[in-house]
């Protein structure tokens, strides 16, 4: 799956790290890093993280990679 985090919006609450720790990490207190194309098996965790983000900074692929899965 594909995600992108709007890091202008992100305020480092860290809810995503708690809910999907294999996909999101904090470097220090506030700097978020993440795996932009996590394995499909992470989907439930990532969707929970996106729903829990207090500033709604996590953007999920709305096509589930259907179009992008082959080279456009």
């Amino acid at each position: 799956m594909r995600i992108v985090v709007d890091l202008n919006r992100c305020q480092g609450y860290g809810q995503c790290v708690y809910l999907a720790h294999e996909v999101f990490r904090l470097s220090g207190q506030e700097a978020l890093t993440y795996e932009p194309n996590p394995d499909e098996e992470q989907r439930l965790h990532v969707e929970r993280a996106a729903a829990a983000c207090p500033v709604q900074a996590i953007v999920l692929d709305r096509l589930d990679g259907t179009e992008g899965s082959t080279t456009p």
Binding site: V4, E35, P36, V59, R62, L63, E67, P72
Partner: peptide, 18 residues
Amino acid sequence: GWVAADHTKLPRMREVDA
């Protein structure tokens, strides 16, 4: 080295039929 270089493909917001 945590994320592979080909793993930053952008999520799609909708079909673009381009």
